[in-house]
Nucleic acid binder design. Structure first.
Lengths: 186, 186, 186, 186
DNA sequence: ACTTCCGGGACTACCCGTTAAT
DNA sequence: ATTAACGGGTAGTCCCGGAAGT
């Protein structure tokens, strides 16, 4: 019964990651104990530790994953699809709560901060591309520096996500209008 | 050292609050120990606990204070002054890092969440008023529902604040342009 | 307002002692905090400490007082009166609970133990005298060593007191019969 | 050190209980710190807490154990054996000091009080049976309600135990004579 | 002169991330 | 892979001294 397959290991790892994500979203990184996570996985302490040798590793992995989700969401060329994905994200309260934890941790951990910054840079570039396409579709003249717009859009999305995280509902129409106004702006 | 004037008590309280704010901004709520804070105040454990009976009280007080600062910043009728204050806030990295902690804590503590939501509502109203004035100054037709715009502006500011918190500098011109675009939109 | 009278001081002292007695009986010596006692007196910390310079002093004073009450109860020559007093004591649950604390503390504090032992010796002698009188009244031949009987009577009373302290009611008739049997024994 | 046999766990538990018993008898429940107990066990804090999740649990377990010892001692039908056991108990000063703590704690903790009362009831019944046998052996007419006698005997034993706890030696002969007088009375 | 009550700081019970023996 | 054990660290309490007021 030795030598489990690589797929099995990957699946295990993913199971743990999902459990940790849920617990972290629910309690916050610091308030969640490793015991909480272990219980959520249904595995044993040792098993979890063999995949993630410390709580910090778990935090980083979950955080990376969460930020990565965003990146994936933005990785589409089709503008309509982009909006749809953003809307979906903007309605996922669990993700929003997790991201709130990630930002707070990043504000305090240079290592995580660097990762988030890197992801943000990529996101900005992607979004800037989207904006270019969007404007051309809409017949609006190209913007000289769409990166600035993209950053603002990203900032607004982040802000709305935080609102969602604390249970303050956001108006879908406001969100869309605002995005539109920003992307088509001067 | 008995029978102390009310001013003295208020000053003490403020001293503790400032020290706690600094420590919390630096390490985050959870990672900051009460010992850290006590040492930062220069007082004794007992003294601190006589002003704030638990760490949670300290957290709430600091959080309230931080959110209140924002509210104060927006409490001006003059649009130019408002922009100036926003810019100042947007450059205060310590405040940004503290706010990141506050959001994360609020995502996990219903009590704090309620307070932040309440403050947000006030901010939105205030900002909506500012936007009205701004548009009238700029000769732009009044917007039917400036609250939606205000929420987006607030969201964008929040997002930029988080960026600042993780050490990703923000372009002042981008920020201003974006604010302008949003407030004058549709 | 200087120089309060000696009576005033004595009254104060007694007030504090009564308050402390009540709190100690209710919570036990260790679980009762000085704050509890101070609040029960209605005075300030400093005032209490000026009469009893430490919690230990309070404990000793209260314990002494409680043991003294017993000694007083036995300090009558009249046998009927003695029985009446014993019965009264045996019904005072608060006193019983306090005595339970005193015994436990004495079991651990040599100082208090010595005091209790001394009081016990006096009690035994007194009781032995009572027994002598009782037997002569009852026309029973004098006992060669009534001290042994007295010690047993005392032990039984102590035991019944503990029962009372933990809320196990005691049968008055049993108690009296037993006392009678013991004092008139062989 | 995983996967340990049940015997091992039981032995561990007993080790901790013995250590706690010794410390509690020596210092009293309140004055004994968890650190004291942990050190006495030679184990780590965590290990002790995994067997007894709080100090209160430790107190209750030790108290139960101590009261149980008494019950065991009385659980013999042979009168001579009973007297021998009582005498042995009456000479165990450590047990006496522990019992003093138990009574005091029971006077303050309804939970423990209930347990002690229950044990007392059993003891009384057992003793009443013993008394019946004793009287029949001695050719004394049966007593109509030996429970009352049993309660008094128990009370006297308790009282003597307290004396022992505070270091006041008791006279073996007095004890035996008294027991005899009581059991053969009225 | 006498009370008040702020402040000190050692100490306590307990939790938690992690290791290593089985 | 499992889990007992580890042990440092945490929030918070408690007793009391002594300076400030009346």
């Amino acid at each position: 019964m030795p030598k489990v397959s690589q797929e099995h290991r990957d699946a295990r790892r993913r199971t743990i990651l999902e459990a940790a994500r849920a617990v972290f979203a629910d309690k916050g990184f610091a308030q969640a104990s490793t015991t909480d996570i272990v219980q959520a996985t249904g595995l044993s302490t040792g098993a979890v530790y063999s995949y993630f040798p410390s709580k910090q590793d778990l935090v980083l992995a979950v955080a990376d994953d969460a930020v990565g989700t965003l990146a994936d969401a933005f990785g589409v060329s089709d503008v309509a699809a982009l909006l749809a994905r953003i809307r979906a994200l903007a309605a996922d309260r669990d993700h929003a709560r997790l991201m709130a934890q990630v930002w707070a941790e990043a504000a305090v951990s240079p290592e995580l901060a660097a990762r988030v910054r890197a992801r943000n840079a990529v996101l900005t570039t992607t979004l800037a591309g989207g904006i270019r396409a969007f404007r051309s579709d809409a017949g609006v003249p190209a913007h000289p520096a769409p990166e600035g717009l993209a950053e603002t859009v990203l900032a607004a999305l982040t802000g709305f996500s935080l609102r969602l995280a604390i249970g303050q509902d956001i108006d879908d129409r406001s969100l869309e209008q605002a995005l539109r106004a920003l992307t088509l702006a001067g």
